[in-house]
Structure formats: C-alpha cells, structure tokens
Simulated assay, not measured.
Amino acid sequence: MTDSVDSPHPRAKSAGKRQRLTAATAQVLHEQGVERTTIADIARAADVPAGNVYYYFKTKDELVEAALAEHTGHLEELTGLLDRLPDPRERLKGLIDAWVGQRETTARYGCPTGTLAVELDKRTGNGLDLAAGQVIRLLLDWVGQQYRQLGAADPEGLALTFVGAYQGMSLLSNALRDPEIMTREGARLVRELDSLDRDRNG
C-alpha cells in the first residue's frame, strides 16, 4: 500500500504527535507546576493516549526539557518577528506589548519560564534548573543587544533591569491576581525607554 493524500506519512504523524505533547507539556506545567503535573494530565491536554507519551518521552524530566525547548522556540519566534522592526527601541516596546498582551494568563499563572525556573531550582541533581536559566539568558542577551544598538551606557545592566522589571510585575500580577499591574508597569517601561532615547539625543 502507498500513502494517500488523505493519510499523512507515519513520520509526519509522529512528529505532529510529539509537537502536540511538547506544547501540551509547556502549557500544563505553566498552569499546574512540575510536581502537580502527571503524565495523564499531559496526555489529556495533548489528546493522545497516556501510554503513547512514553514512546516519545521516557521520564518526566524529559518532558520538562521539552517544555523548556518550547519556551525557547516561542522566545526565538517572538524576537525574530521583533527583529524585523528597524528601530531597537520599537523592538523593546514590541516585547513589552507582547508581555502586556499576556496579562490575563500571567495574572493567573505567572511568567511561564520564571515560575518554572523557580520550581526547578528546588529540585537538585538533574541540571534542569540551569537549562531554565539558559532560556532567561537568551532573553537578557537579546534585550542587551537592543540597548547596545541604542547606544546606551551599560546595556547589560539595563537589560537586567528591564527583564527584572518584567519578572517583578509578573510575580506581583500573579500574587495579587491583578492583570492591570502588567498594563501599568508596561507603560512605565515604555516611558523609561522614551526617556532614555531623549537623554541620548539631548
């Protein structure tokens, strides 16, 4: 028998199921945390039989690694889109807009990568805490590059402040269940960017 137009190649179907599991893992871990999440939860979210999960991921740690890869992919996709903007200040504002656009989810569950990094830090011996830190490092490096292109002094320090502000407003928004904290703090970050630009040109 040959593959018909209506029957995807088995390898393509396998890749699609793995991607569904990866995306579902990232979502469920964000909503429930690592310790509370079961293989059955992930299988249910991905709409696959629970037994199939072990075909792709042998352990829970492998699923966490897949979730971190998913977060990395989302970050690279977002920054790739923002890199199309000609002005680094507008790229940073676009990043703020993306953060604020997720305010309802953030108020309920916190920052996907930040909350995962904190939880993984409590688990020792598997190196996943360092892997989570690498995702945040990618963000810091990209933000620092934007400040560098703006000609700002101490771009690395400004990047730490910028990303730290995001983590802080995510934490407070989640703790207080108030999405508008993201809106207000996002607007403040935009004002600071505009002020930096005026200082540079003044």
Results as ranks from 00 to 15, higher is better:
residue 73 G to D: 10
residue 116 L to T: 04
residue 143 V to A: 04
residue 68 L to H: 11
residue 39 I to D: 09
residue 127 G to C: 10
residue 177 R to Y: 11
residue 78 L to A: 12
residue 83 D to K: 14
residue 172 L to M: 11
residue 125 G to L: 11
residue 138 L to R: 14
residue 41 D to Q: 09
residue 21 L to C: 11
residue 25 T to E: 07
residue 34 V to T: 07
residue 153 A to D: 14
residue 31 E to K: 05
residue 43 A to P: 14
residue 162 F to N: 00
residue 36 R to W: 03
residue 128 L to R: 15
residue 96 I to S: 12
residue 25 T to Y: 02
residue 15 A to M: 06
residue 194 D to Q: 06
residue 130 L to G: 11
residue 16 G to L: 08
residue 128 L to Y: 08
residue 65 E to M: 09
residue 7 S to D: 13
residue 186 G to E: 05
residue 27 Q to T: 07
residue 185 E to P: 00
residue 177 R to A: 10
residue 88 P to L: 12
residue 171 L to M: 13
residue 152 A to M: 12
residue 191 R to K: 12
residue 50 A to E: 15
residue 61 D to S: 12
residue 191 R to E: 15
residue 30 H to N: 11
residue 190 V to Y: 08
residue 68 L to P: 05
residue 21 L to P: 06
residue 7 S to T: 14
residue 96 I to D: 05
residue 190 V to T: 11
residue 161 T to Y: 04
residue 71 H to W: 02
residue 34 V to I: 12
residue 146 Q to A: 13
residue 119 E to W: 03
residue 141 D to I: 08
residue 132 A to D: 05
residue 100 V to T: 13
residue 11 R to Y: 06
residue 173 S to I: 06
residue 139 L to Y: 00
residue 107 A to S: 15
residue 98 A to K: 11
residue 176 L to A: 06
residue 197 D to G: 01
residue 37 T to N: 00
residue 83 D to M: 04
residue 17 K to A: 14
residue 91 R to S: 07
residue 149 Q to P: 03
residue 41 D to S: 13
residue 67 A to F: 11
residue 132 A to P: 09
residue 175 A to H: 06
residue 158 L to N: 00
residue 190 V to A: 11
residue 80 G to M: 05
residue 162 F to C: 01
residue 22 T to F: 02
residue 10 P to I: 09
residue 41 D to L: 12
residue 54 Y to E: 09
residue 40 A to D: 05
residue 14 S to T: 08
residue 39 I to M: 12
residue 194 D to N: 12
residue 108 R to P: 02
residue 109 Y to R: 00
residue 56 Y to H: 15
residue 9 H to D: 10
residue 5 V to Y: 00
residue 85 L to S: 02
residue 70 E to P: 03
residue 157 G to T: 01
residue 96 I to W: 05
residue 137 R to A: 15
residue 178 D to F: 03
residue 24 A to W: 12
residue 8 P to F: 00
residue 53 V to L: 14
residue 142 W to V: 00
residue 81 L to V: 11
residue 142 W to C: 00
residue 199 D to H: 13
residue 7 S to M: 13
residue 100 V to S: 04
residue 41 D to R: 09
residue 160 L to N: 01
residue 102 Q to S: 13
residue 143 V to Y: 02
residue 11 R to A: 15
residue 170 S to F: 01
residue 155 P to F: 03
residue 76 E to I: 03
residue 64 V to Y: 08
residue 68 L to V: 04
residue 194 D to K: 03
residue 38 T to E: 10
residue 128 L to P: 14
residue 133 G to R: 07
residue 160 L to E: 01
residue 138 L to C: 00
residue 152 A to E: 04
residue 14 S to E: 08
residue 139 L to E: 15
residue 95 L to E: 02
residue 152 A to K: 01
residue 158 L to P: 00
residue 140 L to V: 01
residue 106 T to S: 05
residue 46 A to S: 13
residue 170 S to V: 00
residue 88 P to M: 09
residue 119 E to L: 10
residue 73 G to A: 15
residue 31 E to N: 04
residue 59 T to E: 09
residue 49 P to M: 10
residue 27 Q to I: 11
residue 17 K to T: 15
residue 73 G to N: 11
residue 198 R to V: 14
residue 117 A to Y: 03
residue 105 T to L: 08
residue 111 C to M: 08
residue 149 Q to K: 14
residue 44 R to W: 04
residue 110 G to N: 06
residue 12 A to K: 06
residue 116 L to Y: 00
residue 104 E to P: 09
residue 156 E to N: 10
residue 84 R to C: 07
residue 50 A to M: 13
residue 10 P to C: 12
residue 34 V to L: 07
residue 83 D to V: 06
residue 35 E to T: 14
residue 59 T to G: 08
residue 96 I to C: 09
